[in-house]
Amino acid sequence: MANPIHQFEITPIIPIHIGDLDLSFTNSALFMTVAVALSFAFFWVATRRVAVIPGRLQSIAELLYSFIANMIRDNAGKDGMKYFPFVLTLFLYVALGNMLGLLPYSFTFTSHILVTAALALVIFVGVTILGFARHGMGYFRMFFPEGAPLLTAPMLIPIEIISYLSRPFSLSVRLFANMTVGHIMLKVLAGFIISLGVFGIVPFAAVVGVTMLEIMIALIQAYVFTILTCIYLHDALHMH
C-alpha cells in the first residue's frame, strides 16, 4: 500500500536557490499558480462581454461577488466593504486550493500548516493593527466585556486574552487538519480497493462517498475561513 503521507510530499519542479534560501518552484507552487490562473481565466471569460442581462458564466461570477459581499455586510458591517477585495481573494484562494487538491494526482497546498498559518497570521496581525488604529488604547477593552462585574475581571481578562491569541491557531489548524485528515482517509480507503480484490467494491463505494463529503468539506472550510475573517474584522471595526 502506498504511504498515505506521500501525497503531502513537496517536490521541486524548477529548483531555484538564492544564497542559502531554497525558493524552488515546487508541486505546491504549481497548484497555487494553477489556482490563480484558473481564477484569472474564469474572471476573464466571465466578464469578456459583460451585459446587463448576464450570461451563464457572468451569473456565476456575480453570484460569487454578491455571496462574499453579503457575507461581509452581514458579519462585518458596511464599513467592512473596504476589505472586500482581500476577503474575496482569501475565499477564492482557499476554496480553489481545497477543491484542486481533490483531483487525482494533484497537490493540496492548503493541507500544509505553513500556508494556513501564514494566511491566519496575516489576518490576525492585520485585524489587530486595524483595531488599534481605529480604537487606540480603547481596543484593550476587547479583553473585558462591557457590563461584566468588575470582580470577574481577574478571571475574564486572561480568558479573553487567551481566546484572542488563539484565533490564528484555531484558524490555521482547522483548515490544515481538515484537509490533511480528509486526504489521508481517502488514500487509506483507496489503498484497500486493490488489496481486497473483488471485495474492493466496498472501500470503493466508501471512497466515492468520502469524496463527495470532501467536496463539501472543501467548500465549507473555505467558507468558515472567510466568515471567521469577517467576524474578526467586525470585532476590529466595532469591538463587541
Binding site: A29, T33, S39, T47, A51, P85, L88, H112
Partner: peptide
Amino acid sequence: ASQLFWLIVTFTALFMIVWRFAIPRIGDVM
C-alpha cells in the same frame, strides 16, 4: 521558505486580479 515565497507571490497575484480586474468589471455591471 519556498512555500512562503510562492504563497506570497501567488496570493498577491490573485489579489491584484480580484482587486483590479474582477471586482471593477463585475461591480460596474451590477
